[in-house]
């Protein structure tokens, strides 16, 4: 049952793989923004994760070590962001943009000499006979572990934000940092921890691109995935499960346009390639127009620096 030469089971399977990097980066950024910090350096952190993950995996021979390396690399660069915005109170937008540019340049430098090498492969999770279930097995149950880990992370973030005290404090800090401070919560410390968590997620996402999805190292390998992740957070109106839906939607569009290209659709390739980005812009315009629900859900202190005055 193919449509225009596209097999739906294969399409869903590749959609799930394609959406892992943006889903991870977006859920990380969601936590950061819930704490009231706007980190536009997601793209830079992702590509640092991609290059650090790749280098670690090549040298250790283990993709899992690679993921840890990727997370560590992204957290290292996010510490600069944390220092500038939380200690020196630099403008978050400008700092975030600078982190993206810095990350792109630094990753390119670090990746010198790694072009053309194949990283150690990531095995699929063996689910035995389940994988042989028609359609479902092929579409949903024959993936590597990170696909399932990323969904578990979304579930975990949702549960923590909704039900735990830590989540409540995090939301409170993002909502009104003066009040949180007055009640004795450590606004700056909570925000730095959130930034580090967001960076670790972006790093995992980046490492997934260079280790599984592509898998090799080239300059600029993340190709704007970080920006799409930022858009998904807004699209999801800061709700974790909607991040999952958003990531599948955008992952789906990416995969679909690749499949359409391969199937020889009579649309110029350029239009297909730009479609995920066009849809990103479109979604952001629709979501931010008027005083929609998205505006109500945004953390009230988003992007504002906190300075404990007397």
């Amino acid at each position: 049952m193919d449509f225009y030469g596209i097999n739906p089971a294969v399409l869903i399977a590749s959609l799930m793989v394609a959406s892992v990097p943006i889903m991870l980066a977006a859920i990380g950024e969601l936590v950061v923004e819930k704490a009231g910090v706007l980190n536009l350096g997601v793209e830079g952190m992702m590509i640092m994760g991609a290059v650090c993950g790749f280098i670690t995996a090549v040298h250790t021979g283990s993709p899992w070590a690679g993921f840890l390396g990727g997370a560590a690399g992204a957290m290292a660069i996010s510490l600069i962001f944390a220092l500038l915005t939380q200690v020196f109170l630099a403008n978050q937008v400008a700092t975030g943009l600078a982190m993206t540019l810095f990350g792109l340049g630094l990753s390119s430098l670090m990746g010198q000499g790694y072009n053309g090498i194949k990283p150690p492969a990531m095995a699929d999770v063996p689910l035995g006979p389940l994988e042989d279930i028609p359609f479902i097995g092929r579409a949903f149950l024959s993936h590597d572990a990170m696909v399932y880990v990323s969904i578990l992370i979304v579930a975990g973030v949702w549960a923590v934000l909704k039900y735990s005290r830590v989540g409540l404090i995090l939301r409170a800090v993002g909502e009104n940092h003066d009040a949180a401070h007055a009640l004795g919560y450590k606004v700056r410390r909570i925000r730095v921890l959130a930034i580090l968590f967001g960076a670790a997620m972006a790093g995992l996402g980046g490492a997934y691109v260079s280790l599984v999805r592509v898998p090799q190292w080239t300059d600029g390998i993340t190709a704007g995935a970080g920006w799409i992740a930022l858009a998904i957070v807004v699209f999801a109106s800061w709700k974790p499960w909607r991040v999952l839906i958003g990531a599948y939607l955008f992952g789906g569009i990416t995969v679909l346009q690749l499949n359409l290209q391969a199937a020889g659709a009579r649309i110029p390739v350029e239009y297909l390639s730009m479609s995920p980005y066009l849809i990103t812009i479109l979604v952001l315009v629709i979501m931010s127009s008027g005083k929609g629900r998205a505006g109500l859900n945004a953390p009230a202190a988003l992007g504002q620096n906190f300075h404990a005055s007397r």
């Binding site: 005290r165 409540l168 404090i169 409170a172 909502e175 009104n176 003066d178 009040a179 009230a300």
Partner: peptide, 20 residues
């Protein structure tokens, strides 16, 4: 009881109480 700066608009009454 603060003059201002101590409530969170987007949270409900119980959550606000729990934070304190």
């Amino acid at each position: 009881v603060f003059q201002h700066f101590s409530l969170f608009d987007a949270l409900n009454v119980a959550e606000n109480v729990a934070l304190g």
